[in-house]
Structures are given as structure tokens and as C-alpha cells.
Simulated scan of single mutants.
Amino acid sequence: MTNGDPITGDDDTEPDADGASRTDDDNVDGASGSKVSLPGDLTAITLVTILTCAAVALPGVRSTGLRSVLTVPFVLFIPGYAIVAVLFPEAGVSDGEAGEETDGSERAVRPGLTYVERAALSFGVSIAVVPLIGLVLNLTPFGIRLAPVLISVSGVTLAASGFAAYRRIQIPANERFSVPYRQWSRSVAGVFSGHESNLDRLLTVVTVVALLLAVTSAGYAIAVPKEADAFTELYLVTEQDDGELVADNYPTEFVSGESKSLVVGVGNYEHQSVEYSLVVELQDATVVNNSTQVHDRVELSRQRLTLADEETWESQLNVTPEMSGERLRLSFMLFKGDPPSAPTTDEAYRETHLWITVSDSAEQS
């Protein structure tokens, strides 16, 4: 600086080839061996990734709205931005400069992206990469579960951010991409500086808020789909000679005192762990005018089981009827928690049954 140079308050910055302000840290050439700090945009990407992992993993936070707020950009934008930063470390020409003719200057052939192109490409790359990570995980023993997906996407994002920072260091400081935070903040402040009318300010605020709401709503709908209705599955199947379970060939002819086997299954899709009670009864029942009347009943078995969310339980059950008669109802009643002292099918949470005939053993001899 000469003695005639004016001293201003912004002497810590200097404009680059694109007119954007850069700090002294950005002007350090990586080839000189000087310390170069992590760029601001990649620092933000790293912080959002770490905060998202904490919001998903910490018990006190993962049930709050903060999890949804962080996971939407984490899935739809963050991984793609880091990968695009690796592919395009150079600063791109601005929209106004892109159409200008230059005399073979480096700016005219620079391979960087404009801010709009970079943002759009970040969304597209994220939408392509995250499902690809899920596809790869599906081929591994880990499967598509929350922990493996979170670790994989975070690992890809952090690795790409580090490599992007390394690539920026390898190119001259005046060609590196950087986000002009100060320039943008001045532009936003200019709207409220008194040079614009009140109507222009109001329209600007409404437009920005509407855009943010639209993007957030669309991202939330994609990243956090509506939770399916809670339900429990109760079913009966039979085991074939080859070990395959099929919903067919149910035993309907029994002999009193002799056993035949069935496989009963329970699937928990209640979005939480549930304790069940399964009661199996043989009932002498008749159906009159869509109303079932039970004349006699014999309890064959009763057992308790606890299933985690999306867990399925199957067990082979040997049915040994002690009551004989035609068209008896073999009823499987599932209850949440403890069953009533005298359980009925109307009180059961889930119920399925078979109509069977039980012959007396004396008749068979």
C-alpha cells in the first residue's frame, strides 16, 4: 500500500475475478504450504451433517421437530452439494458475465458453475445418490435400516466435503469457488435500506417466505412420508413336505385325542413394541342370523409373546381336540396384554378360525 492509498474498513477483503468478496484465508495459495481454513460452505455442510446425526441418534431429540427440519436438507441437498463441490471446485462466471465476449481470457473458458446451476445440480445429485446408497446397502447384511443409511450418507458427505476442500486448495485463490455471503447480505440489507418502496419490501419478503415454505413442504413430504396405519397381523398356514409354508391344505378332519399341526403367525406393525396373548379354543358354536352363539368351549392353549415393531413370530401348534362333533370352530384369539378371564371373539384384538369336524375315537375303531 502506498502513502496515497485510502484506508477503508474493508481492507481485509478483495474482489476476485467474479466481483465477489473473498477473505484473506481464501487468498492463500495451497501450493505455498500456508495454512488454509475449510471454506465456509463446506464447513456448513459438515456442521449440518453432524447435527443431523445427533438429532436422529439422541433419544431426547429424535422425537422432536428438529429431526425433520434437519433430515429434509440432509437427504435432498447436502450430499449432492458436497459431491458437486468435488467435481467443480472452480468459481463459475456470473449470469451477466456468461454472455460477454472476451479476448481469450481465462474467465471465458472457466468450467465452474453459476450459483443457480450449482444449487439445481446439488438437488439432482442428492436425489440420485441417496437411493443408490440404499440399493448398495440392500445387497449387504446391514440392509436398508436407519443406522446403516445414516452412517453411509454421512460418510459419503463428509468424505466428499474433505476432498472438495483439498481440490480447492490445489487451484489459484482467485479461481476458487466461494459463497459471497457478505455480498448477499448487503443485497438483502439494501432492500430495507430506504432505497426501495414499502410495497417492494413487502413483495420481496412475501416471495422469499413463499419460496421457503414451498421448498420445505415439498422436501418434508418426500423425506418424511406419512406413517402407515398401525395394525397387527394374525394368520394360519400349513407346512408342506418340502418345508414351504402355504395358506392352504388346512386340516379339517380330526379324531378326538389325536394331534394335527398348524403354524400360527403374528406380525407386529404397531410402530412400537407390543405384548400379546394368544388363546386357542375349540368351540361348539352355531351361527344364526349373522350372530354366533357358543354352547360349549374347551381351551387348548394360551401363551404370551412380546414383539418389537415389524417383528414377525411364527410357531408350530399341535391341535389336540378333546371335544367331538361336526362343524366345531377352532378359534385363534389374539389380545393386547392380558386376555379376559372368559375370552370371546368379540373382545379379541384379532381373530381367525377354522371349521373342523372331530370324530370320537371309538367311532374310528
Results as ranks from 00 to 15, higher is better:
D12G: 11
D16M: 08
A17H: 14
A20Q: 04
T23K: 04
D26H: 09
N27T: 09
V28F: 05
D29T: 01
D29C: 06
G30Q: 02
G33M: 07
S34C: 04
K35S: 13
S37K: 14
L38T: 12
V48M: 03
T64K: 00
L66S: 03
V69N: 00
T71N: 10
T71Q: 10
F77Y: 14
F77W: 12
G80A: 10
I83H: 01
V84E: 08
F88Q: 04
A91C: 08
E100V: 14
E101G: 08
G104P: 05
L113V: 05
Y115H: 12
E117Q: 13
S122P: 08
S122C: 06
A128V: 04
V129I: 15
P131I: 12
L132V: 15
L132M: 09
I133N: 09
A147L: 14
P148K: 10
S152R: 08
L158M: 02
A159F: 04
G162I: 01
F163G: 06
F163L: 14
N174P: 01
E175S: 11
F177G: 00
F177I: 01
V179L: 12
Q183D: 15
V188W: 02
V188M: 02
V188N: 02
G194A: 12
H195N: 13
H195S: 13
E196W: 01
L199F: 12
D200M: 08
R201I: 13
R201H: 10
L202Y: 11
A210V: 08
L211M: 14
L213K: 08
L213I: 13
A214R: 09
A223Q: 04
A223Y: 03
P225G: 13
K226N: 12
A228R: 06
T232M: 05
E233F: 13
L234R: 05
E239S: 11
D248W: 11
Y250V: 15
P251K: 07
E253A: 13
F254V: 04
S259I: 01
L262N: 09
G265N: 07
V266I: 15
L278N: 06
L278C: 11
L278Q: 12
D284Y: 03
V288A: 04
N290M: 10
N290T: 10
S291G: 04
Q293P: 03
V294W: 05
D296M: 11
D296E: 15
V298I: 10
L305N: 06
L307H: 11
E310M: 14
E311Y: 09
E311I: 00
Q316F: 00
V319M: 01
M323W: 05
E326K: 11
S331G: 06
F335K: 09
P339G: 07
P339V: 03
A342P: 08
D346L: 11
H353E: 12
I356P: 01
D360I: 15
